[in-house]
Design a protein around this nucleic acid. Structure first.
Length: 422
RNA sequence: GUGCCUGUAGCUCAACGGCAGAGCGCCUCACUGUGGAUGAGGAGGUUGAGGGUUCGAAACCCUUCAGGCACCCCA
């Protein structure tokens, strides 16, 4: 490999084999989304930087988005997330849309980050939101969508868990410990990272923020309390509703789930593989106000986003991605020699008109080579027409799997091939 | 953005500072009307790139690029 121009750092090439897997994943996403009555939508991949400045906070755009000036000098960002776009789209038609809105989307996103396993600079993301209701039932539904999706993929509750918490609950509990309102955001951010730091370092960081040692131990007791949810007016009904929705097995309470995004206000959730080998599979939560920052009237909702990278790594590791067969249903029309190129093309066209997938060999070549090609691309059978067949007005059908071949009259060809492929 | 690890043929990997190799794959032929087997040939490398040390570098040093791991961040 000498002078092949390199791809952009953190991007991936999808050769047909990988593309087939991606399409398979999209199909699962579509099925699950539609099962719950969600409609597909999409926005542009380019947005003005103002949109994100309004919605996502400045650090996101400055540090992690691909931003460039267009020819007029306006700063444009490659979308790093969909929520601001969604907010903009909803706000623009706020008075004509029918709420609650159930929308889903799948598309590419970009973040200027250091690539590593489970994280690339260009990735695909499933976004799904229920907008215009503030209820716990809405939260339960989105969690159920995620759980149902896992079920559709063949994942079991012992392999993947959706961990749930509630920010209001945490705010209240932190208040009980005597942590002031201005300290809480920093503490919440630390809680979010507790599993990523050595215990001593974490303790130190907490004390550095100004907590007293007894507050630290109260905080740690809080984070170890798996029954904390029973004190939440949102989580109590949430868990029985999840029971009713048939997905309770996939869900657990975890006081350490916070989520980084500021716009989540109530229930938040994150799905992880139970071995802890991979990054979070998906994350989401309840927001009080989707569109106000972009100029609309306040509108609550709940949603989550799932990147394609981690889920595929997990499914790959668990052997849950079915073999994507290449072609398999098609026919290869061989070209015996240059004198038979025309008749081969006519037969190919004839079969295509009957709705059959036909690959016409693009030049005259040795039969052995053409059959080897047929074998490799995985077509079900190959057709041969040479001088002998012309004389008899027949075509040879060769079944690649059984290695059997037969001569069939031209008139019976379509019927015979259809039977073979069925 | 910070630290550490890795980079040799299409793939998986060898080679003490001393001739760059193997297996698999690929191409051709044996087979001028028949694919997975077999056999015989063959192609394919500036050892990621650039510089330095050395009589001599795939190996040691520096830089850079890419990937991986941890941090950061996670929209």
């Amino acid at each position: 490999m000498k002078n092949i121009i390199k791809s952009v750092k953190g991007t991936r090439d999808f050769y047909p084999e990988e593309m087939a897997k991606r399409q398979w994943l999209i199909e699962k996403i579509r099925q699950t989304s539609e099962l719950f009555g969600y409609e597909v939508y999409d926005g542009p991949c380019l947005e003005t930087i103002e949109l994100y400045a309004a919605k996502s906070g400045e650090e996101l755009v400055k540090e992690q988005a691909f931003v460039f000036p267009d020819r007029s000098g306006e700063l444009i960002a490659l979308r790093p997330e969909l929520t601001p776009t969604l907010a903009r789209m909803v706000a623009a038609r706020q008075n004509e849309l029918t709420f609650p809105l159930r929308w889903w989307s799948f598309g590419p996103f970009w973040r200027y980050e250091r690539p590593q396993k489970g994280r690339s600079r260009e990735f695909f993301q499933w976004n799904i939101d229920l907008i215009g209701v503030d209820s716990v039932a809405a939260d339960a539904e989105l969690i159920a969508v995620a759980a149902k999706f896992f079920q559709n993929l063949g994942l079991r509750p012992d392999q993947v868990q959706i961990l749930v918490n509630n920010r209001k609950l945490m705010e209240r509990e932190l208040n009980f410990i005597g942590i002031s309102a201005e300290l809480r955001p920093a503490i919440l951010r630390l809680i979010d990272r507790i599993d990523k730091q050595p215990a001593e370092a974490w303790d130190e960081n907490v004390l550095k923020l100004g907590l007293l040692p007894n507050q630290l131990s109260s905080l740690k007791a809080l984070l170890a309390n798996k029954d904390l949810w029973q004190r939440s007016n949102e989580l109590l009904p949430l868990f029985w509703q999840l029971e009713a929705l048939g997905v309770a097995e996939f869900v657990a309470y975890d006081p350490k789930i916070i989520r980084g995004l500021d716009y989540y206000t109530d229930t938040v959730f994150e799905a992880h593989d139970t071995t802890g080998e991979f990054r979070a599979i998906l994350g989401g939560g309840h927001y009080a106000n989707l569109v106000e920052d972009v100029g609309g009237k306040p509108l609550p909702g709940v949603g989550f986003a799932m990147g394609d990278v981690v889920i595929m790594l997990l499914l790959e590791a668990l052997g849950l991605i079915p073999e994507q067969k290449r072609s398999g249903k098609g026919v290869l029309m061989t070209v015996f020699d240059s004198a038979h190129q025309e008749i081969a093309a006519r037969i190919a066209t004839h079969l295509r008109e009957a709705g059959l997938q036909v690959i016409l060999y693009p030049e005259a070549d040795k039969l052995a080579k053409q059959l080897k090609y047929a074998d490799r691309i995985g077509v079900r059978c190959a057709l041969v027409i040479g001088p002998d067949e012309i004389a008899e007005n027949t075509v040879v059908i060769k079944d690649l799997a059984t290695r059997q071949q037969e001569s069939v009259p031209m008139q019976a060809l379509v019927e015979r091939v259809k039977n073979l492929l069925a």
